Amino acid sequence: MRTRILLPAALAAAVLTLTACGSDEDSASAGDTGASPTKASSPTGSPAGSLDSGGGSQGAKVPEALDFTATTVDGKPFDAKTLAGKPTVLWFWAPWCPTCKGQAAETAKVAAANQGRANVVGVAGLDESAAMRDFVSDTGTSAFPHLSDESGEVWKRFEITQQSYYVILDRTGRTVHEGVLPGGKGLAEKLSALTG
């Protein structure tokens, strides 16, 4: 009985532990991969009623990719359904990752430039909430939400196996890019193509 409980938890921890901070070399192998039918970001979704203010479009259909809840690094509840109807960037990072720190300024710049037209959300993992809060403060990225994904649920949902990784969804929730963008370079252009 105890083995049944511990084995899934140990497996999840092993997957997250095996990740290494991305490097410039990673970008060559992790470029555009398009949508995968097995990923949570498939375009199929269920209709949603009116969405709460502060995120997505009123009455937008909520794709499966955005049908989850989490908690922000500052302890507030977060409902991804509020992102529906707009292109969305999910930036997966870890507090101790130098590559992630190198992406922070460009990611914050892109978030500010696209405010109201697209969503940018950081998804912190592989550490504790206090370290995640420090990263947000130290990098000046507090203008957009960051999720505290200590348990790795959001990372697993998007099949993320390394930090400093971007997943970009179009307004329907379909994955249009996933991979490493060294220094965040190219993020603005990829999002611009979706916000037109």
Rank of each mutant, 00 (worst) to 15 (best):
T141L: 10
G125L: 05
I5K: 03
R157C: 05
V180G: 05
E106I: 04
L83E: 12
V154K: 05
W91C: 10
A94Y: 11
K156C: 05
A9S: 08
L11D: 15
E106Y: 07
V167G: 12
Q162S: 08
K185I: 02
L83M: 12
D52M: 12
F68D: 07
N119G: 06
V176E: 02
V120Y: 15
S23K: 00
C21P: 05
A13L: 09
G140M: 09
D149Y: 07
G125M: 04
D138W: 01
S27V: 00
T195G: 05
D170G: 15
R117D: 10
T71V: 11
S192E: 13
W93P: 01
P87T: 08
L187F: 14
S151L: 09
R133M: 04
G85R: 05
H146I: 06
F135S: 10
T33G: 13
A111F: 04
V120R: 07
V167Q: 08
L147G: 05
T71M: 09
G183D: 10
R117C: 06
K39Q: 10
C97V: 06
G31E: 11
S53R: 15
Q163R: 04
G183W: 11
P77R: 06
D67I: 01
S42A: 12
S192P: 03
G56A: 09
D32W: 03
S151G: 08
A131K: 03
A124Q: 06
T195D: 14
D26T: 08
L7M: 15
E153H: 14
P8C: 10
G122I: 06
E25Y: 04
G54H: 04
A28H: 02
G186F: 07
S129R: 10
A28E: 02
